[in-house]
Design a protein around this nucleic acid. Structure first.
Lengths: 345, 345
DNA sequence: CTGAAAGCGCTTACAG
DNA sequence: CTGAAAGCGCTTACAG
């Protein structure tokens, strides 16, 4: 009594930590606990009178079904695990948003781990497995093929978002058409009259970077133009600054640079303009990939290849939501779109 | 048999969906199921011989404790719910990363919902409650005071990150010293000799924006300088572009603009430079708040107030991890630091 | 230190 | 449609 008085100034309602259970609701409503469960279960056979009785008692007690307990029985946690590398890339918050929104609509929740770009996230995946997630999405992260097997054995689908691997194992991948993107960018630069080309890769073992490069190189080859000079920017701003300096310091410096993502292209624009006095578009063509919001800002005005992250998210979630219903394609590729702005002429 | 053969080309190991339980491990190891549990429980009384026996059997079966079942009994899900508004602000991925990393270290997982900036997220909070989260973090989102009460009653702490409210109810807030930040920015601009000031607010009912504005206005008042012109930029790029155009079109246009965050300040730099031909720093002083990575890029080179998100994340997680141990401050304020760059003279 | 047993809060056959 | 009962996969007193 004196305790509750001394705390009264802090808050009107004391924190009890007591949470109503289905049993409490059943007792108050004068029905069985099964009935309470049915009132909260989609499509359970229950009379509307009974449901109303239960719902009234439930709201009186502030009852909320414990989904952890439900998950134990149904063996569906409705949780999707997601690991995100490269937090620095503005594309990923957008991807996260799309995925989160669409997953919510389908009744799924997102359990998130952040990591370093391209990091091996076995530790986090193990944790997902302990939480009995219904699916796993990898964003710019990597897992061992041993663990991929474990996931497969456990019946947990793994989706590589914006990436793929040679040996998919039990996994599947969702990407935009990176090869075609690189190709269209190459053709665009050729038509614009650029002569000496460079490609700024993400990192060596990124399928995304590789395929963009492949398409680009092929388009140049078709025009009998020498292969592009090649540098590596790590998919980061800092890495791209280094790589751009290297490129622009060459005696025979390139007059067009295709960066494997917008983040690196923005850095390259800054280096060109403020360190070398070169005006993007005029003195040097700079192209990115992704079409992040920043790409359209006047400071960058980046020619780029727009990634259809909306559609990619839809495909990803549809795959997860229709688990087992239909055998999906292992590798889903969604077309993107070339966006020409003033960072190229 | 014929089925497994027809699938053989797809993967070496068939997806069985069968997951080992503590019972399976117990049987294989020839011990009780309790022993298995103890082998996986921190500080449980178990001989090392027994533990080894269990662990061997467990690894043979690929056993992973079901933390959902554990959560049911311990009443600790080790899940923290987080709602994030304003996905567009580059500060938030960083915040997410810090929180995620530190929470992981303390054995907590992040259940994430994204939302619109300043959105009311009662729906998502209800979902957190059904998942029996151990704590809730709100990032640029808002919940009804009724639900805040519900959380309090259920013993679930709610932390407002980078925000506060007048009536905290059962909640608590973690912010940087916004008032002081605004004040230091005001003094810096005065010293630099700027004369006509403007403030670009986030939105009306944001404590963050209000306190930054308050400090700013106070510092001008102390110098007997008229109150700043005031516009609203919604904390977004698009909103800031509109607001900046409005400001710079005035007959008596301001020569110094303090934007309530860096995101808006970057937009203001672009509008000033590319639409009005004004060079930031020289023709017009532009200041932000946060010190996002972009702020240091040459294109923006933003004078700003660095938010100590590292420390803020630490305080947040410490609070969550020490649940109940000690009564924390309801409102935690961490000092930041003025960073002067060339967007002001 | 170890095991048998109860129980966390639910869902779901199984009878009625 | 409804209830009693079994059970999801664990943890944790309780004896020994």
């Amino acid at each position: 009594m004196s305790r509750s008085q001394s705390k009264a100034s802090d808050s009107a309602v004391a924190s009890t930590g007591v949470i109503a259970t289905a049993h409490d609701v059943a007792r108050l409503a004068g029905v069985s606990q099964s009935a309470v469960s049915r009132a909260f279960t989609q499509g359970a056979s229950i009379s509307s009178k009974m449901r109303r009785k239960v719902l009234n008692a439930a709201s009186e007690l502030g009852y909320r079904p414990n989904v952890l307990a439900r998950a134990l029985i149904t063996r569906r946690s409705k949780i999707v695990g997601l690991t995100m590398g490269n937090v620095e890339n503005p594309l990923f918050p957008l991807v996260l948003d799309k995925l989160s929104t669409r997953l919510s609509e389908q009744g799924f929740r997102l359990l998130l781990f952040t990591a370093k770009i391209n990091a091996q996230v076995d530790k986090q995946i193990e944790e997902f497995l302990r939480y009995r997630v219904d699916a796993i999405i990898l964003l710019s992260t990597v897992m061992s093929s041993w663990l991929a097997d474990e996931c497969h054995k456990a019946g947990i689908p793994v989706i590589l978002f914006n990436r793929t691997v040679k040996r998919l194992g039990g996994m599947c991948g969702v990407t935009s058409d990176n090869d075609r993107g690189g190709r269209e960018i190459g053709r665009h630069l050729l038509e614009a009259g650029y002569k000496r080309f460079a490609f700024m890769a993400g990192y060596e073992d990124s399928s995304t970077s590789q395929m963009r490069e492949h398409g680009f190189t092929e388009s140049l080859k078709e025009a009998s133009v020498p292969a592009p000079i090649r540098v590596i920017g790590d998919f980061t701003h800092a890495g791209a600054v280094r790589a751009a300096r290297e490129l622009l310091s060459l005696k025979k410096r390139p007059d067009a640079i295709f960066c494997a993502n917008d983040q690196m292209a923005c850095a390259t624009v800054d280096v060109a303009r403020y360190e070398f006095g070169l005006e993007p578009g005029k003195d040097v063509g700079i192209v990115g990939f992704d079409d992040i919001p920043m790409a359209s800002w006047p400071s960058f005005s980046l020619t780029t290849y727009s990634q259809p992250i909306d559609e990619m998210a839809v495909k990803t979630v549809d795959f997860i939501a229709h688990l087992g219903k239909k055998a999906p394609h292992r590798q889903m590729v969604v077309p993107g779109k070339l966006i020409v702005r003033s960072s190229t002429r």
